[in-house]
Design a protein around this nucleic acid. Structure first.
Lengths: 356, 356
DNA sequence: ATTAGCACTCGACAAGGCAGAGTGCTAACA
DNA sequence: TGTTAGCACTCTGCCTTGTCGAGTGCTAAT
């Protein structure tokens, strides 16, 4: 039995309908609603074939068919029709993203929120893998006689700061000296290297060069190390969790609860999304059991990476029932991705100008 | 008809049971489970009285009674027995709060999360009303030739920063001058006053004093204004939304959805929580219709303020069905409040030491 | 190869019946 | 006079039953 063109068209029709209605689809429905020029009986036979081939499943005898994960896979790979965002939809996204962005994380969160509101699914954004980031600037700011703020800026525009208690004897001028020395030593290093450098004798190195007693600024260095470690922390933003309640597959409150608890585990969902992301600019679709975690074996994940120039910054995606509106989801994510890349570039001052 | 002691004990028994079981309570249940030395018939008569007086309600004839808002009010005011946290519970909270706190907002979020996880209700924390904050330090940090970071620190330890594009001609030394001048001018001012000062001719004032052309640093000032405005932004943290799904009053998915959507409106729930907060150290309980917003007329809100010395910083609380475990909730919030106050003090370097 | 027809299956839904928990009322009791 | 026992009544939840509609597989005719 082979997968001929007719079977594909029937499968497509079934999946389209099922995505729409969430009800098992019967042969008559297809015969009526789609102009395939076939009777319900013929379609019935084809459907039996498709089931045997594993593309469809039957909840019970004498119900209609529902797509299997394998069916969805064929659908997203070959059958579904590209959905072009309408002008007004693009406008809607654009205005929703219109916001005074002050921090990179704000942009990411905003994008995540817009995506989930627009698609009515749950969005997950991971700002991760800052391991590739490099330290751009280190600065010490005196705040009070015995307190200073340590600030680290990375090339990706991430800013971390921390207040540290300093020795009373440290005068502001000394702070400036230390600050400059730190910039010299750490500027341009990757986060990992900077960390290693701090923990391997930077104190005594500076002690010699600056002529300041090490114990006076040791606390500053350990605080700095803390900041740098924070950079490496992957942040996970989940938006629109309540959207799942709109989908009939989560009508059962226990299912809904499971789903939401799973999303509350930010780190694990972050890992899943991150692991799902792949290579460069593509949009990755993971359907049901294709996902590693069994918790989401009834869900699909559509993700993409956002980045700047060639630096990978993070992943953003949507999660929903396997019965997802793939065409719309894919184009939405594609658009948001482009939008984010442009905004991030703009935010960091790289004037990349591509039209949207 | 008066509210004698016996009626109170019966009411207490009913509410205790109802909080436990979420089922309407009948006279026989009370007679059996509580040692009141009364028959079900007597209790029945008393219950009829309590209903007439408005403390109880009946879902329908021939069902048991449920407490009304008025009943809960009497309960929390006079009847409920103080719940003392067990040693192991305190330990649990303490270890959960054990965390390297780097930012004030992190502490608040953490406290909120712990509270919701411990009580199984939904927690809301508002870090708000920074209007009373004053500017402690302003700092400009050069990042690249034509970019600088503007940093503002307040007396409450809030830090905001922003990157700004500067004129090429501004040398780092000029930045230091401007920075110092800004500290002079704005240090100690309230957020509002600082804002007003910036917008009312600070540019020309500095131009004169420093001998630097105003247009060179106007962008810095507007960026600074942006930072200061951000300080004023109230942040709202909601944790444990999925907890509501555990309570039978939200078994209906529509109710659950309503509740969650309401919580998604961060600003409005923030306002409600904030409005509910009152005066100083007390714990405020708002039961059902006592709340201003009709959206939560089936919910109770238990809130308290956290602060440092005498400066009000924000509000934290729990939201759940009116059928709440008030005794446990109240003592949990009370404990978290003390804990936060101490940690905040410690974080800001005021070594207040009170045992917990 | 396709289609019409038919018998069969299964879930959804409404109607009816029953058991259990609770009430209000009345009359008896201490 | 307050308390209690007893009884008739009511309402919900649950289970059973019957019916309807959508869907299927199979067979025979086209």
């Amino acid at each position: 039995m082979s997968m001929d063109e007719r079977k594909k068209r029937i499968l497509q029709a079934i999946i389209d309908d099922y995505i729409d209605t969430a009800e098992p689809i019967g042969s008559r429905t297809i015969a009526r609603k789609h102009e395939l020029g076939l009777s319900s009986a013929t379609i019935r036979n084809e459907m039996a074939d498709l089931e045997e081939m594993g593309y469809l499943a039957q909840p019970h005898t004498s119900a209609g068919r529902v797509p299997s994960d394998k069916g969805y896979r064929l659908y997203v790979d070959q059958l579904m029709q590209v959905y072009d965002l309408q002008d007004d939809e693009i406008e809607k996204i654009k205005t929703a993203m219109e916001l005074h962005i002050n921090e990179l994380s704000q942009l990411i969160r905003q994008a995540s929120a817009v995506l989930s509101r627009f698609t009515k699914y749950t969005s997950v954004a991971v700002a991760s893998q800052m391991k590739t980031s490099t330290v751009k600037a280190v600065q010490l700011v005196p705040i009070e006689a015995d307190k200073a703020m340590v600030i680290v800026v990375t090339n990706a525009g991430i800013v971390k700061n921390n207040i540290v208690k300093t020795a009373d004897q440290l005068r502001p001028e000394a702070l400036v000296m230390i600050s400059n020395a730190l910039n010299d030593k750490l500027g341009g290093l990757s986060v990992e290297k900077a960390n290693r450098k701090i923990s391997s004798g930077l104190v005594s190195e500076l002690e010699m060069e600056l002529g300041i007693r090490g114990e006076l600024f040791a606390s500053i260095l350990s605080c700095l190390a803390g900041c740098i470690n924070q950079i490496d922390n992957t942040e996970v933003y989940v938006e629109g969790t309540t959207n799942v309640l709109n989908h009939p597959e989560f009508r059962d409150i226990i299912k809904a609860k499971e789903f939401m608890s799973m999303l509350d585990e930010k780190t694990s969902i972050g890992r899943i999304v991150f692991d799902a992301s792949d290579s460069e600019g593509g949009i990755i679709i993971r359907i049901g059991s294709e996902n590693d975690l069994s918790d989401i074996k009834d869900c699909s994940l559509v993700t993409t990476n956002y980045n700047i120039a060639n630096t990978f910054i993070g992943t953003i995606g949507l999660i929903g029932p396997t019965r997802m509106e793939y065409p719309k989801v894919v184009s939405s994510i594609g658009y948001i991705r482009k939008f984010m890349n442009r905004e991030i570039g703009r935010f960091l001052g790289l004037d990349i100008d591509n039209d949207l």
